[in-house]
Amino acid sequence: MELPLTVEIILKAVVVLAAFLTLPLAIGQTEHKVMAHMQGRLGPMEAGPHGIAQLVADGIKFVQKEDVTPAAADRWVFRLAPAVALIPYLIALAAIPWSAAWVAADVPASLLFVLAVTSVGIFGTLMAGWGSGNKYSLVGGMRAGAQLVSYELPMVLAAASVAMAAGTLSLTGIAQAWSWWWLVWQLPGALVFLIAAVAELQRVPFDAPVADAEVVFGPYTEYSGLGFAFFLLAEYAGIVVMSLLFTVLFLGGWSGPWSDTLGPVWTLLKATMVAILILWLRIAWPRVREDQLQRLAWVVLVPVALVQLALTGVGVVVWG
């Protein structure tokens, strides 16, 4: 099927945008429901059948709300922050392959690309923290900054281990080079990546930046209406991107029975499992203290990731 280049690009952009708009909502809905069931309650049941339209209702509510900019806020920084937080995930989603053919932008070093782009998202949080003109926001923003910088290192190291094993920086290439025994070989790296990903998303148990008992809602304290919705969307989009990335890197992406035709389904299935795991963490775990959080990153994750790198190196040299 040959399409003109422009049409293809537009089509792909539309598809990515659509995925970007629906998947986070699905994650949000899943969170509501999974959390409710794990806690032995029903969850939202009013809007739509079985509460399916709850998130749409939420969206309408957010749109109707007044968008308040505090008087002490740094106006432009405050207004731009949600967009800065959201857009990197959109760009990252475009580079993640769903199957060998299903990838919107198959750039050569797509792993590096995804990691680089998502690392920009931190500015949204920092800007929100600074721009709100609120001391809780500032503290939360600084916590977020420290946390994201700390956890980016083990994350990149774990990803580098997979790239080294596959011998390529391309996500498509990595997923194709994957074979089942990587599940064992790359297990430490996978755990490190998963933990670091949860920390990058600032979700429980690493949600000290938005700990409501300490800093209200951290950088997002002053946001209301659409701005807040954007941050919420960014968080869910982050879960989507990280789950997909984890799937492609450590779970073989679309590999599975009949992967020629069912490839994207496998990707989606595996990513859903990972996403539910991330949601589950939030429901099951208490919050980690700020110092414990830094300690975990530097004392546990970084060394483990380095050991994993060495392990991969040995493996590549021995079997490669």
């Binding site: 750039v107 050569p108 070093a109 590096l112 690309f113 990691l115 680089a116 782009v117 690392s119 920009v120 931190i122 500015f123 920092l126 923290g129 600074w130 500032l138 923003g141 600084m142 900054g145 420290a146 994201l148 910088v149 980016e152 990149v156």
Partner: peptide, 25 residues
């Protein structure tokens, strides 16, 4: 492109964050 991505990852993602951090601190 490799240099560009590393620039983005290291400089923008980490170094400037540190700078902003120092400004806040």
């Amino acid at each position: 492109e490799l240099v560009a991505l590393v620039q983005l990852l290291v400089y923008v993602g980490a170094v400037v964050v540190l700078v902003l951090f120092a400004l806040m601190l």
